[in-house]
Computed example of a mutant assay.
Amino acid sequence: MTAVSGLGPWAGTDVLEAQTAVMGELTSTPTGVDGLPFLVQLAARGYGAEPTGRGAALLAELPAELGPHGWKLADRPGRDCLRAAALLREDVDALAVAAYGYAGPLVAAVTGPFTLAAHLYLARGDRVLSDPGAVRELTESLAVGVADHLAALRVAVPGAEPTLVLDESTLAEVLLGRRPTFAGNSVLRAVPAGVVSEQLRLVAEAARAAGATRVVVHTGESWIPVRSVVAAGADAIALAVDGFNERGWDRIAEAVERGVGLWAGLPAAVVAEAGVGAAARAGRSRGTGSDLGGPDVVGQAGALLGPWGRLGLPPARLRDVVVVAGPSADATPDSARAGLADVIRATELIAERAEDG
């Protein structure tokens, strides 16, 4: 059954309100659509709640602190690290309340080892990514922290079946050698694809040993890392599917045909002008638009359905796809919830295409 979920980011600062909204939307999806609730991430709460600080909070025996230029490894735990850990515990506590009595899939996203190494600095030096030994140490530390995090989630929600998403949105830069040094006058050396696959596999295996039912690697807006993710043994690859060229879609199709799942990030639904264009007419015919205009969820679904059809992939394989919402820079809690509702409606159209095929 075609599923719908999110990768964590949410607007606002009230974590319980956000988690309750997500649980409500994704446990009441339409017939034919499987909702996968996720652990929310509210970066608007400040340092320690944003992806790098949140990732640093998971590192086992590798304390970090906030320096003038960003998060860096530290000699001993300090208040910055403690704050990040406290915010993460607050998230898990809110999940325990909002998901009380829930049993089923639960998605938890964390910053992956290479994206974390690309943003986190050594205690005395450049980015962690500049030192292969430090990257390996960080990966091993993160693997332990991820296992502990999954254990905490299973205590908070005893009926949970966790899926781990590793956010590797910087991975293309890492593989291509395009990540700038701290000084900004050069770039760091590219990390070999084999090393990337090996270390992603290490975290994935630790997650599965801790009870993760599947491991997904999110590569942001790039298809470049797809083969490395497949070689790492990931169960699925997540990426924003809007705007890829033919070569990118060929790479995605190659992964799908090898049995790797696709988590397709859709663009935000634009507001359709009433009565203009085929998408608006199709929206009215399916109850997804109106004469007053509204979100064009037909066009939103088309970001996946169009290329899928051009590649000749079987429509029935859409049942294996998980659809996720793309980020919205100017979101509010209300617009975040409306955006998730739009994605659920777009997923319903994708599920219908799967059944028609």
Rank of each mutant, 00 (worst) to 15 (best):
G277Q: 10
A74C: 07
A253Y: 10
L311P: 03
A108W: 06
R154I: 03
P37N: 11
Y100L: 08
V217Q: 07
S169D: 14
G78F: 04
G125F: 13
A3Q: 13
G233T: 06
S186I: 00
P77L: 05
E137P: 00
P113V: 07
R281W: 10
L164H: 04
G70R: 14
V40P: 01
N245D: 15
L116W: 10
T31E: 15
L106T: 05
D291C: 00
A98W: 04
P51M: 04
A60Y: 07
A301I: 05
L171A: 08
A64P: 08
A269Q: 03
A143E: 13
T181Y: 06
A172W: 08
P225I: 03
R258K: 12
T170Q: 10
L42K: 01
T219H: 05
E61N: 15
T111D: 03
P158F: 05
R201M: 04
E273A: 13
S28Y: 01
P105S: 15
V196M: 03
V203T: 02
A43E: 13
A103W: 01
D126E: 13
G326D: 10
G283E: 11
P180K: 13
V216P: 00
S228R: 13
P225G: 09
L120N: 11
G220M: 05
G339T: 02
L239A: 08
P192G: 10
R214K: 13
A280Y: 05
R124H: 13
A264T: 02
G293Q: 11
I237D: 06
G48T: 06
E137D: 13
S130E: 05
P105K: 15
T332E: 04
L122G: 11
L138G: 04
L16C: 00
L116Y: 10
A190G: 07
